[in-house]
Design a protein around this nucleic acid. Structure first.
Lengths: 222, 222
DNA sequence: TCTTCGCCGTTGCAAATACAACGTGCATTG
DNA sequence: CAATGCACGTTGTATTTGCAACGGCGAAGA
């Protein structure tokens, strides 16, 4: 695992804050860190949340399990990513989702009130933190809308293609890896795993794409 | 149409701001109002947006049309509601969605920069505006997650039931009206209209619900 | 080496869905 | 009153999907 400062520097919550100011700031925020093993629950649905989490190492999934055990994966959050910010900022009573460690992970928890309450007139950082938080919330909003674009498609093929196209755009390459195994990808796209597997096989036969495990390559059709 | 102040008072962007301060503030924000007829585009996908819109009267839909003409309705926004805030705050280059008037509507546009830039040390309102904006973005986030709960269901019946349950909760009654006609509801739930109609008929026969136009009544099963 | 376990592809089948087409009722308009 | 347009329900059909079950394969552990 990398040490804290270099990870936190990449976290958008601390954008435009000098690295040597971070230590003082973190003290002021009274942050706490904790490790989780794979599949451990970091937040549980129905919990009350008063803090946001920063992923120091590993990655987490924001999920929702329904009564029948069907799991939906809302988001995958990697190193330096933030989670729980919307629920903290909206001061919601009950968390509608859970957060689990997708792999062994270390999380830094920061009390939400500490972030948005200007501790004193001298601490100029909080103004910065609040603006950063606002931008994070806005971008999170847009990510959710992006995901809705995938879910709004009618067929598994269209869902998969819109997701993969987006991944290709983000990695600026027609070949890329995704942070999901097959079952997780199905849960993310809200389709059945075997139906997804079947469709992927057909698409590969048609020459639309190639894949191996979580590595994908989009092919141009002539 | 109601006059401005009484509508703006209900707008969360101006929460905790005294009504008689609103006039001065609006001048400072250099807001502009404009009317739209039904189905008129207020924002077009691919546009650049520098302002947020407040619905003074009527209502709007945030939509996305794909290449084949399939429309998805992301959100319905009624009086005193806000739209475009996420795209403005994230300073996105191109709008991924469009906004259209669901019925004749009057919109108040406010430049985003005017909102988040503290104009001078004496203007205390901007601090308030920024905190309000943060809460709005967070709540918007949660609304999007809520909608994803509908879309993540596998069948039309489950999508519809989860949506109607939510509406019943919000109206605190088992009977309520929704802001969509049949085609719009299908576009909102991302399913085919005729398939939705068929399923609704079956559910009514089974005694799960009753409906007439956009009025619904959820029935308890014994 | 053998066993176990998780991941993934495959397949059969019943159920659900999209799509296209049509009819009806109702409001608006000429 | 006739004509038009729109919203909505209905239906037939091909396609897609979820579900359950099975087998192969490779990694990890005994």
């Amino acid at each position: 695992m990398e040490n804290n400062p270099s990870v936190l520097k990449k976290c958008h919550l601390f954008a435009d804050i000098a690295e040597n100011d971070l230590d003082a700031l973190l003290g002021c925020l009274s942050a706490a860190r904790r490790g989780y093993e794979k599949n451990a629950f970091i937040f549980q649905a129905e919990d009350k949340v008063f803090s946001v989490g920063v992923v120091l190492s590993g990655s987490v999934h924001v999920i929702q399990d329904d009564y029948w055990g069907n799991r939906s994966i809302f988001a995958n959050i990697g190193q330096a990513g933030l989670f729980g910010e919307a629920f903290s900022c909206a001061e919601i009573e009950k968390l509608p989702v859970s957060v689990i460690a997708a792999e062994p992970a270390e999380i830094l928890f920061i009390g939400y009130r500490k972030i948005i309450t200007t501790c004193s007139n001298t601490c100029a950082f909080h103004t910065k933190l609040i603006k950063n938080m606002m931008r994070i919330l806005a971008r999170q909003n847009i990510l959710l809308i992006q995901k809705m674009e995938f879910l709004s498609r009618r067929t598994t093929r269209e869902k998969l293609l819109s997701y993969l196209s987006e991944q290709a755009l983000q990695s600026k390459s027609s070949s890329f890896s995704i942070p999901f195994n097959r079952q997780e990808l199905a849960d993310y796209l809200c389709v059945d795993r075997s139906a997804l597997s079947r469709e992927m096989g057909i698409m590969q036969n048609e020459g639309l794409l190639r894949f191996n495990k979580n590595y994908f390559e989009l092919l141009s059709v002539e």
